[in-house]
Amino acid sequence: MEKHVLDKPFVKVEPELCKGCGLCIEACPPHVLEFHSSFNTKGYHYAYYVGDGCTGCGVCFYACPEPEAITVYKKGYEYVGEEVA
């Protein structure tokens, strides 16, 4: 599989593991997280990354009460395949 090095920070929200509490959205300094207009299967408007502007600061990760709704990848993160997408 192809090896990648992340050239800018990235944040991933798992729609199915998000309870839509909005704490990450409130916490994100550059306001790059928003509620999605659609629901997940639990009936929550999940959070999503607008796609640009994440600084990789990590505060959303600690604001989120869910164990694996949010993953923050910092610049320089090395991965193979499709892990960060």
């Binding site: 199915e16 593991l17 309870k19 839509g20 509490c21 909005g22 704490l23 639990k42 929550y44 600690y62 604001a63 989120c64 009460p65 869910e66 164990p67």
Partner: peptide, 12 residues
């Protein structure tokens, strides 16, 4: 998904 309510501090 844990059993806690949305936004519950136990998760943090």
């Amino acid at each position: 998904m844990p059993h806690y309510c949305p936004g519950c501090g136990h998760g943090n």
